[in-house]
Design a protein around this nucleic acid. Structure first.
Lengths: 367, 367
DNA sequence: CGCTTGAGTGAGAACGTTCTCAATCGCTGA
DNA sequence: TCAGCGATTGAGAACGTTCTCACTCAAGCG
């Protein structure tokens, strides 16, 4: 009969009795509200200490209507982007006395919808959501309608009344592409990770094509890539755009395919750190060197980017700060600030290292 | 006066009234317990749908005594080890209907203690803790005494009645060291990340020295390192053991120092993926090549380990499975299984790649 | 002296569920 | 027909807090 049986913790009523006061007074002494005489307070605190009293936040939340909990919905916490952003959210939250309830959505729409339901039932005070690419606007709108503030991270959801935090994806991708163009590259491949619908859109030059591109993070970056090319009078070649999945192996396979083309790219822009890793792996397998044979630029300044050989040039996002800002905006709203939705675009920074260099002079061999 | 004001959601009482039944019946229909006639059930569900009813888990938890919440305490969610383990915990939890409340302790003892208090007040049903190195046994014991099951991840806390999940750190480090010895290395450095108290202990050959070493994860690995050396009749050289912090820069600095020694190591064993990264970075700066000049073996099979040049040889831990198993053990206990604490040691795997090779033959130049 | 004021206190309501218990309903079998 | 039984139902308690309200008491003020 040793300890492990679920022991019920003493309630405030027991503490009050022990201290010889009413539950109301005990509550005031322990909760730090209302007014209590020094004598009562001491008696209550001593009794609480003796009994090992622990307040029950559930009961408190029932009354106050605040759970001091923030829900965080991310596709995959293993992805360094999201774990770093989560760190930012959590730090801001803890600093102000909030806790974080975490759910992985796995890029699965039905999981996302279900999680939103669960978090609503748990009465979280607010929600930071990095929505699935094809985000469920209605489910999110339901949450907002229920009076729960929502901040979107990294990705936007058209038509949803919510704050958003992210970067200017189009400009960042355009900048990165321009760097490669400036090095003389004319045949630049794009590894998006997104889905195959992207490729035909990219080829379409009409306004509708561009608009649709801009709707998602991946799409916006692809648009920036195209912008840069077109400004240099280079027609984007759809076969140089890969959208074959977000995993490292997908990127490796895509790289192998791209470099097997009749007119292979001399440079690759990877829209995510995991994808860049896939490229490096494929290059190794193919016996090609970076940057001597192929230049590479990645997105997100992973911790390994600086340490490997060659150090990887990247578009660095202020990932931690994105999360922290999302947390701040959310807590603002939780505290009742009623304002129009704001859209924060934090600046990116191109980190030039050694994975991209001038294209080989045309004197080069035929490989 | 548009939507954003916190709208109170309809309670079960409102739904009951709308459906023309009692709250008890409405509760049964919505909660799926007790028995309800088909007619009542339909009426209630229809009413709930009409009003957009969302159950309040707080109230439910008050009654049932279960919050369906698992607390997870990790030093740093950004560390890939913990984010992957968390993924394992969360997957198991979600699968069985539990949610995860996450707290970073930052290796800070007072934060850890505070977090344990907060999670107790939130009445989490159980706790997975990766304790700070100098874990606060009393605070953890308080939690256990309060009837909240605890599973320790990665690190052990002597004297605490709790399940633990981890690897055999001593054997894993010994194995890795033996691999380097087999390649002819006799001067092998150890990067621990731990604190400076380690070095004198390592030198002490008495039983007490070994025992103390085994108490922490870092210590156990250091002990394994020493075991391997001693078995080969090699006296460990304390100056080859670095314990200067867990960050990448710490490892880089340590590497630079080690390689500047009069009799520098020909191989390095890094006890963590971030530390290995620091070694690589330092080697680059020093203009040394891996493995031609220095061999390197790391811990944890990070996603970049296979993709970089040279691919890194590592001791791979089943990180995801460690988390998943912790989740399973915890939920077992939450479901009332009363048993003696179990200690799961999952097998590690040495992944041989290309960062370690035979020591240069003595014909070599003087550098 | 009487009135106001404010600190301190306790009884009891309230939050939104689930649980307990007794009552009712509808049907079966003797 | 009637006892017996299980399914269904609702009233009200319970969970552990905070909130509302009314009350006491002593001090301050005219």
């Amino acid at each position: 009969m040793s300890g492990s049986a679920r022991r019920s913790m003493p309630s405030i009523e027991v503490v009050a009795k022990e201290a010889g006061v009413s539950t109301a007074t005990a509550g005031r002494a322990l909760g730090g509200y209302g007014s209590v005489s020094g004598k009562s307070r001491e008696a209550v605190l001593a009794a609480a200490e003796r009994l090992g009293y622990r307040a029950n936040s559930l009961a408190r939340s029932m009354i106050t209507g605040l759970t001091h909990t923030l829900g965080v919905l991310v596709p995959d916490i293993e992805n360094p982007f999201f774990s770093r952003a989560l760190r930012g959210i959590a730090d801001v939250a803890h600093e102000r006395g909030w806790e974080v309830l975490l759910v992985n959505t796995d890029e699965d729409l039905s999981l996302e919808r279900k999680a939103l339901g669960v978090l609503t039932e748990r009465r979280v005070d607010g929600l930071v959501v990095a929505p699935t690419d094809t985000a469920d606007r209605d489910a999110l709108q339901d949450v907002v309608d229920a009076g729960i503030p929502v901040v979107l991270l990294d990705r936007r959801v058209p038509g949803l009344e919510a704050d958003t935090v992210g970067i200017d994806n189009r400009a960042a991708a355009k900048d990165a592409t321009e760097r490669l163009l400036a090095l003389g590259h004319r045949s630049i491949a794009l590894l998006t990770g997104g889905d195959e619908k992207l490729r035909p859109r990219l080829a379409r030059t009409g306004l509708r094509g561009v608009e649709r591109l801009g709707a998602t993070t991946v799409g916006a970056r692809a648009a920036g890539y195209r912008d840069a090319l077109l400004e240099q009078g280079i027609e984007p070649r759809p076969e140089l755009v890969s959208a074959e999945g977000f995993r490292r192996e997908d990127a490796a396979a895509a790289t192998t395919r791209l470099l097997g083309l009749p007119d292979p790219p001399t440079a690759i822009l990877a829209l995510d750190s995991l994808l860049a890793l896939g490229v490096l792996q494929a290059l190794r397998r193919l016996g090609l060197r970076c940057p001597a044979d192929v230049s590479l630029v990645g997105f997100d300044d992973a911790d390994w980017a600086e340490a490997i050989s060659p150090p990887l040039s990247v578009v660095a996002q202020p990932v931690y700060e994105l999360g922290a800002e999302a947390g701040r905006l959310l807590l603002d709203r939780v505290h009742g600030t009623d304002r129009r939705p704001v859209h924060r675009r934090l600046p990116t920074r191109f980190v030039e290292r050694e994975s991209a260099r001038s294209v080989r002079t045309p004197t080069g061999t035929s490989l």
